[in-house]
Design a protein around this nucleic acid. Structure first.
Lengths: 169, 169
DNA sequence: TATTAATATCAATTCTTTTTGAAATTACTT
DNA sequence: AAGTAATTTCAAAAAGAATTGATATTAATA
């Protein structure tokens, strides 16, 4: 497989994966495109490469910036903005974990706490069952949240080592 | 908040969450309904409770069974099938992790390996960059895969304890 | 083996999400 | 401050995903 073919396949792969980590196809494709590119790209170049509209390119590039996965680069003497992707993949994983925690886990915990008002009234079997369910889910959500927060703060090597030990048994 | 209102809120919450873990709204709602219910429910009852069509109820109930999150229950002397949800939430988490690993991580690794043929030809800067990227992603995917496999096999208490220690620092 | 009661299927429809592209806005440059 | 080159916005269109419901299939009973 030659380089261009490889890049193309990679963009395709990353795009189809996007939905798995909470991102639409175009956003994932732009990300992939910038990941494989060795130099910053302009909106025009992104549009051209992926055959997408200006609006689409603009919106999704900005989303990637919001996620912290892509950065603006200004070229000396040029008016146009260029974009470059964070290419340390451990850092990328951290950013995605962080963003999803904020967007998904935190609101979940808030909403579970509302249902948790139930804990007080452990009356009949039905109520116990429900209270217990909410409690268990809350516990898992809170633990996951802590776990991800930890990852966010952790050094790459420390983390991989710890994980490795952990997996050894 | 009274019990029925609580259950209703829970079903709504779980349904809206579904897409985050790779499942459609109805599938998540049926799951929630069976989780809060203290006794097995028939397709009719599910249709009625959630106000959904027979086809929809049937397809999504079967998906839940495929995921291992719901089981068929046969009532003595009755022709109808009833459904019940696995209600130990740690077990539920494990099943979801397991299923997603199989559906998402494994195929990803396969596809990355194809791109990885590149590793051999570390020629110019461009090729190095790309080979390196694919390698890093593969490494993360393989580590995650191992991690999830480990969780699949692990006892609940052992796992939570280990995770707890791990998070302590 | 005919009847009936249930489950499963899938083309058509509805609902949701993404994408387009033209117009509005912003911000350099002369 | 007028002109130009870029970015941003957003209503409408297209694409994609989920749902319906009528029909087909399966399997239990008489």
């Amino acid at each position: 497989m030659d380089l261009d073919k490889g890049k193309e396949k990679f963009i395709e792969l990353w795009g189809s994966l996007g939905s798995q980590w909470g991102v639409n196809r175009t956003m994932a494709q732009i990300h992939a495109l910038l990941l494989v590119s060795t130099n910053p790209m302009s909106t025009e170049e992104i549009m051209e490469s992926l055959k997408i509209s200006r609006g689409n390119a603009n919106m999704n590039t900005r989303s990637l910036i919001d996620w912290g996965l892509v950065h603006k680069v200004l070229k000396h003497g040029e008016r146009k903005e260029y974009f470059i992707a964070e290419s340390d993949m451990w850092e990328v994983s951290r950013k995605i974990a962080s963003e999803r925690r904020k967007r998904e886990l935190s609101p979940l915990i808030d909403r579970l706490n509302i249902l948790g008002d139930f804990k007080a009234s452990k009356g009949n079997k039905e109520e116990k069952h429900f209270a217990n369910l909410v409690e268990e889910i809350t516990e898992i959500a809170v633990k996951s949240d802590k776990f991800l927060k930890k990852i966010e703060k952790t050094e790459q090597n420390w983390f991989t080592n710890a994980l490795f030990k952990f997996m050894k048994k």
